[in-house]
């Protein structure tokens, strides 16, 4: 029981790290980026290639996954995404679905369609027993890393100059420009950072979530639920939503395997009926 809860928390933490970049692009830049999962997948494949082909340590792969995806994100933002910030949502949806398709087919072409496996370092594999509760070491590692990241993220957004500029740029682009904030730069860096986080999430999640070319499609719905249920105005909203989703999904698949796959949809529908504007949204105008 506690083990399930623990696994659920680890899963939820991962979902949060994966989705929080999307929270930023979506909530702050008003860009519906369905290709977010493709960045996560890229991070996963970076890790797989580095570890399995070049034998580089897992611990180095994680930051590498972050950096590589962040760079990819930065490049794509500058070349493609930036033109669509003010396009309507249909355009953004089509565009990002296009990217997803390309990523899926591309991953299939280069890496093959099979599930990728990574060999975790021995100290991270297996379970340990803490007070009668079986705890996966890797899951513990995931929880610790993700929790630190979540905290750092919260601090960056609320306490640093950059966070301040980002919020200003989002609130009113023109005024922010007038104040001498380089809005395109802020957006590009934010996008890169969000993509990097997704990449990191993909790298860490390869073990727990699995990794194959269909990753971006499989997890699209999870990301969307996290973001729309959690709202985009805070960090804590998506965090709680991700935890809820993670725990419910793991518990559902464990306890009621027959209807396990439906737990997330049930959750989504209940949420829609109870709180159509998002679970944690601030009581807004309309």
């Amino acid at each position: 029981m506690l083990t399930i809860l623990f696994d659920g928390v680890a899963y939820g933490m991962l979902l949060f790290i994966l989705a929080c970049g999307l929270t930023v692009t979506l909530g702050l830049m008003n860009f519906i980026n369905l290709a977010h999962g493709a960045f996560a997948m890229a991070g996963g494949y970076v890790t797989v290639v580095m570890m399995n082909r070049y034998g580089i340590s897992f611990y180095w792969c994680l930051p590498a996954a972050f950096v590589v995806t962040a760079i990819v994100g930065l490049v794509l933002e500058r070349t493609l995404y930036q033109w669509l910030y003010r396009a309507d949502h249909l355009d953004q949806v089509l565009f990002s679905i296009g990217l997803v398709f390309m990523a899926v087919a591309g991953a299939d072409y280069f890496m093959g369609g099979q599930q990728q496996l990574i060999n975790l370092p021995p100290e991270l594999s297996g379970r340990m027993d803490v007070g009668g509760v079986g705890i996966g070491r890797y899951r513990l590692f995931t929880i610790v890393v993700c929790a630190i990241l979540a905290l750092v993220l919260q601090l960056i957004l609320s306490k640093t100059r950059f966070g301040c500029r980002l919020r200003a740029a989002v609130d009113d682009r023109r005024v922010a420009m007038g104040l001498g904030i380089n809005v395109p730069l802020v957006f590009a860096l934010t996008f890169a950072f969000g993509s990097g986080l997704a990449g990191l999430g993909g790298a860490m999640g390869a073990e727990i979530l699995g990794l194959d070319p269909n990753f971006p499609l499989k997890f699209m719905i999870y990301f969307l639920i996290v973001v729309s249920v959690g709202g985009t105005s805070t960090v804590s909203g998506p965090f709680l939503a991700a935890m809820l989703l993670g725990i419910a999904d793991v518990a559902g698949k464990y306890y009621v395997p027959a209807i396990g796959p439906f737990v997330i949809y049930a959750l989504m529908i209940i949420m829609l009926i109870l709180r159509p504007d998002g679970l944690f949204s601030r009581g807004s105008g309309r």
């Binding site: 979506l26 519906i32 369905l34 949502h89 949806v93 699209m220 719905i221 969307l224 639920i225 973001v227 729309s228 796959p261 439906f262 997330i264 949809y265 989504m268 529908i269 829609l272 009926i273 159509p276 504007d277 998002g278």
Partner: peptide
């Protein structure tokens, strides 16, 4: 389910229902 909420919520809802039917 699609009556309220933003474009984003509707995307989630329609996608979710589609996936759910496939799973069913």
């Amino acid at each position: 389910l699609i009556l309220r909420g933003s474009d984003l919520t509707r995307l989630m809802t329609t996608l979710g229902i589609g996936l759910m039917m496939a799973e069913v």
